[in-house]
């Protein structure tokens, strides 16, 4: 017992002061991509051509679909002029699929809070059932990490529960394999209404690296009504927490940089 107490003292205090203090991410962290099309050579489509998930379109200015984006380095490396770069902006979640487009001179429309009635229901106590439907265990890991002492999800009244019948919403990760479709729908049906659906990661939003494989359904949006899209491969835990709190109206809606 004495040893446990001593160890506790040695470990120190690690719970972040978020949201009073915002997190600092490592300098190489790849958050919101920004585009400087003045650097684009005439007719160049290099970035779009190398993008592994075809997240980039160049007609009428570069547009990056964050729902497909793996936040990899391929477009940056391919661009001869440095027209695309990643920022450390981790706030990326949106309420609609269409809002997940990053383009020049346009700030990302971050997730708005639920309506007042829903917020009264879920704002101070949100129980979520997570279902991995062909996720690679990276999104799952960074959802799980929210329950550790650094993020301490419980202090926001958010908790992952074992039974869908105890849940207010579903967190989906993975591209939704045909082999998980039925189990995912069963879990959704078992959650009492009104209920939320949150898609976490490129796979759950668009199929990610597995997009258009016949074995998957390109994410959960074709099967379920999604209330919150949290992009990334995987999204950083801060991105996920930011999205959840925005949905509940617990953060002010400062636009992304």
């Amino acid at each position: 017992m004495l040893q446990v107490s001593l160890a506790r003292l040695k470990q120190g205090h690690w719970t972040s002061r978020y949201p009073l203090e915002l997190p600092t991410l490592p300098d190489r962290f790849r958050g919101l991509p920004v585009v400087d099309s003045t650097r684009c050579p005439e007719g160049c489509r290099e970035c779009a051509q190398v993008c592994p998930t075809d997240a980039i379109t160049t007609d009428g200015g570069i547009r990056i679909d964050l729902g497909r984006c793996l936040f990899c380095t391929d477009c940056m490396e391919a661009c001869p002029e440095g027209a695309i770069r990643y920022t450390r902006e981790y706030r990326l979640s949106t309420r609609t699929r269409a809002d997940l487009i990053a383009q020049e001179h346009k700030t990302l429309k971050l997730a708005e809070a639920l309506d007042e009635k829903s917020r009264r229901l879920f704002g101070r106590s949100l129980k979520l059932r997570q279902v991995s439907a062909a996720g690679c265990n990276a999104c799952e890991a960074d959802v799980n990490v929210l329950s550790t002492i650094v993020f301490d999800l419980g202090r926001f009244g958010i908790q992952f529960v074992a039974s869908p019948r105890h849940a207010d919403g579903l967190v989906v990760t993975g591209a939704v394999s045909e082999n998980m479709r039925s189990a995912l729908l069963t879990a959704y049906e078992a959650i009492p209404a009104p209920k939320l659906v949150i898609a976490v990661g490129a796979c759950a939003i668009s199929g990610g690296p597995f997009v258009d494989n016949p074995e998957v359904h390109n994410g959960c949006a074709s099967l379920l009504p999604v209330d919150l899209f949290i992009p990334g491969c995987p999204p950083h835990p801060w991105t996920i927490l930011d999205g959840l709190l925005r949905l509940l109206g617990r953060l002010d809606n400062t636009p992304a940089k």
């Binding site: 592994p52 991995s132 062909a134 996720g135 993975g174 045909e178 597995f210 494989n213 074995e215 491969c233």
Partner: peptide, 23 residues
């Protein structure tokens, strides 16, 4: 969890191969 990961590698390497491998 079957996503057809191994099957899609045939015909590669292509721009998606390494990302499939990483996931």
């Amino acid at each position: 969890q079957h996503r057809g990961a191994e099957r899609t590698l045939v015909g590669g390497p292509n721009k998606r191969t390494l990302h499939t491998i990483e996931t």
